[in-house]
């Protein structure tokens, strides 16, 4: 799996036309998506499992995991992770609540409760989870060599 991820990673860098500048990539960023499946056991109890899906249907609960690790030789400062929400996914929260979000395609950012959405009649209403288009995490601590972590958010297939 890791091998496959690295291949994709390199290809993407090549696309940006800056592969030489990243000869020694100081940071690894990987994205995984899991789907929650409820399985009913023989005794009637239900258990929730996470599996890696290739197929989902509307209403499925997804768990997105973004892992980061400093694999370079220097501390990375002002580390910011951005994840545009796929259009077919409705944001369903994070476990730590440390994210800031955008409800306008990444132009303005803030904590969800502070953002407002313009209504057709010119007034605004408080933004809802269903309005979220982007997620962003500003890690306020320098990412030292070898440091790693993961960011988790949930979504529902629209």
């Amino acid at each position: 799996m890791m091998k496959a991820l690295k291949t994709t990673f390199t290809a993407l860098l090549a696309l940006t036309g800056a592969s030489s500048a990243f000869a020694a990539t100081p940071l690894q960023l990987t994205s995984d998506v899991y789907v929650e499946r409820q399985i009913q056991r023989a005794d009637g109890t239900k258990t929730v499992t996470l599996e890696k899906p290739t197929m989902v249907t509307p209403g499925d609960n997804l768990v997105f995991v973004v892992k980061y690790k400093n694999v370079g030789t220097a501390t990375a400062n002002n580390f910011v992770v951005t994840n545009p929400l796929p259009a077919a996914v409705k944001f369903d929260g994070t476990s730590d609540g440390l994210e800031i979000v955008s409800v306008d395609g990444g132009k303005n950012w803030g904590i969800l409760g502070t953002l407002r959405v313009a209504k057709p009649d010119g007034t605004t209403r408080p933004a809802l989870r269903s309005d979220v288009t982007h997620l962003k995490w500003n890690l306020n601590q320098p990412l030292t060599v070898g440091a790693e972590g993961k960011l988790i958010f949930r979504g529902v297939v629209k």
Binding site: L12, T16, A21, L29, S31, V66, G72, V80, P86
Partner: peptide
């Protein structure tokens, strides 16, 4: 789904992209 990260290094700001996860509906 694809995530991106930006950070500062001694050489200046850097942006990287994660792998892309594709799921079909």
């Amino acid at each position: 789904n694809i995530a991106s990260a930006t950070f500062d290094t001694a050489g200046g700001p850097v942006t990287i992209q994660s792998n892309t996860v594709v799921i079909k509906v």
